[in-house]
Amino acid sequence: MRHSQLRAFHHVAALGGFSRAAEAMFLTQPAISEQVRKLEQAHDVLLFYRERKRVRLTETGEHLFLLTKQLFEVEQRIADYMSETRAAIEGELRIVADSAHHVVNLLTQFRQRYPNVTVSLRSGNTEEILHELRSYNAEIGVIGDAPSTPDVEMLDLGATPITAFAAIGLLVNPAAGLTLAEAAEFPLILREAGSKTRASLEEEAAKQGITLKPAIVAEGREAVREMVASGAGIGFVSLAEFGHDPRLVQIPLNGVDIAMRETIVHLRQRREVRVIRAFMEFARADHPAEV
């Protein structure tokens, strides 16, 4: 197995095709194809399904791709270590968050300090976030509760209660609040399975002998917000994330004590990746009590 073969495979997998890999590596497409073919032939495996002009990873290819992500990240860390220790930090910081609200200010400060770092931010629920971290498709996650798993390091951002909310005019007196039993009589707009907010609500409802049956299941917090704003029913969110929307009104939940924690997480084995280490230093400065 040669390093050049692994690099060729990695670029094809990362970029989704032999032509793109060839352009990125400043090589010809036949040269890239030959490197991958030799890798497959030497180990008697199929790494890609070739479908006309498209390629798709096989199961073996998926596993190898995860390993090459780790390999070339360690290679970059070695290069960083061997270069000037105080060289400017650059690269990409990919963040997947269940709510961007908790890291917006932090990201602004981070970008001011490290302008050469490109930051991407996308949304996901807890299960999706942990999957993306473990697949090396993200460096940082922001999730509802700290997962009980040894492969991630965590920083607690604090907790806020869960509140209900609805479109203005749906309730006569929203400030009086609702019990879970009363809320369950309305059409409920709930997050997808895997959402920590939904799981916490359903757990509390079960304790009270109540079934929360969704009228609509919406993918993501913004989708829930838009459905609720249309007057379709009642939604739920942590108080810190409710924000200000003139279409919506907050509804306190009576007889319910549910708090949603927010936690920054990253893979423990990637703690020395420079961009992760730099971001976590900023985060700990704002939230010194680490879990």
Rank of each mutant, 00 (worst) to 15 (best):
E62G: 02
L66H: 08
L66G: 07
L67C: 11
T68W: 03
T68P: 03
K69L: 06
Q70P: 04
L71I: 05
F72C: 06
E73I: 07
V74F: 13
V74Y: 11
V74Q: 13
Q76I: 02
Q76R: 13
A79L: 14
Y81T: 12
S83W: 09
E84G: 15
E84F: 12
E84W: 13
R86I: 12
A87V: 06
A88R: 10
A88F: 05
A88Y: 07
A88V: 12
E90D: 12
E90Y: 07
E92D: 09
E92H: 13
E92V: 08
E92T: 10
L93S: 02
A97I: 01
D98Y: 08
D98W: 10
S99P: 03
A100G: 07
H101Y: 11
V103W: 00
N105P: 01
L106H: 01
L107S: 02
L107A: 06
T108E: 09
T108G: 05
T108W: 05
Q109I: 04
Q112C: 05
Q112I: 04
R113S: 10
Y114R: 01
P115S: 04
V117Y: 02
V117D: 02
S120P: 06
S120G: 08
L121E: 02
L121W: 02
R122N: 11
S123N: 13
G124P: 04
G124T: 04
N125E: 12
N125Q: 09
T126A: 15
T126M: 14
T126C: 11
E127A: 15
E127L: 15
E127R: 15
I129Q: 00
I129N: 01
L130Q: 09
L130G: 06
H131Y: 14
H131A: 15
E132I: 09
L133K: 08
R134E: 15
R134A: 15
S135V: 11
Y136G: 10
N137F: 15
N137V: 13
N137E: 15
N137Y: 15
E139D: 13
I140G: 00
V142P: 00
I143Y: 00
G144R: 01
D145F: 12
A146G: 07
A146S: 09
A146L: 08
A146Q: 13
A146R: 11
A146I: 07
P147L: 09
S148Y: 08
T149I: 14
T149G: 07
P150Y: 06
P150F: 05
D151Q: 06
D151K: 11
D151M: 10
V152F: 03
V152G: 01
V152E: 03
V152L: 10
M154H: 10
M154V: 12
D156A: 09
D156L: 07
L157F: 14
L157E: 02
L157Y: 05
A159L: 04
A159V: 08
A159S: 12
A159Y: 03
T160E: 02
T160A: 06
P161N: 07
P161F: 03
P161L: 06
I162V: 05
I162G: 00
T163Q: 06
